[in-house]
Amino acid sequence: MDRNQLTKWIKSPGNMGHKYSLDVVYFCTGCGIIEIPPSITARWDAERFGVKPVATPRQANLFLITGYVSVKTLKAVIRTYEQMQEPKFAVGFGSCPINGGMYWDSYNTVNHLDKYIPIDGWIAGCMPRPEAIFIAVTHLWTLIDKEIADGYKRYRDKYKYYRANQEKVLGELEWPPLFPEDDKK
């Protein structure tokens, strides 16, 4: 830890905390889960970056969606994302959440995940190697440093539109809105 970092720690401990302690909830929808075990075990060891898998979305602040998202999965993705506590960051892993990947012409695959929940970063590739996760993590550090990783703020501001998009695909949603309209005023 050099002097530069120390001043940062003193100035904004919260920001630095979010940076160096990313508790991940892995959402394993497709083939992406194959890349997760090597990245958290002895070969690549994600824990040295402070990246640690946790059991429930309540404890997590990084959401990694690995693999294609079908309509049914989208429901679970939204619920998981809404259960996480702010500040929270979402990262799409693999080309499927980006634009549907090789399943783009399926009747049941949601093509662009960022139409439904805000995504802070993408890891492109089919499949990305575990190293790509670490590049993404270090990139996310700079984003958090510059306060560009503001997906949760965008979600709060434009919740109306996100919810409208979600309802367009899923029909009537079973859960009440996370940010009701009256609260804003």
């Binding site: 549907g100 012409d105 009747y107 139409k115 998009n165 695909v169």
Partner: peptide, 22 residues
């Protein structure tokens, strides 16, 4: 007779990005 590509274009592609919508 279900045309998946047509369906994808007519349904999923029509949903706007939130930023554009704003």
């Amino acid at each position: 007779d279900f045309d998946t590509r047509k369906y994808v274009k007519e349904f999923y592609e029509e949903i706007p990005f939130v930023e554009d919508r704003e």
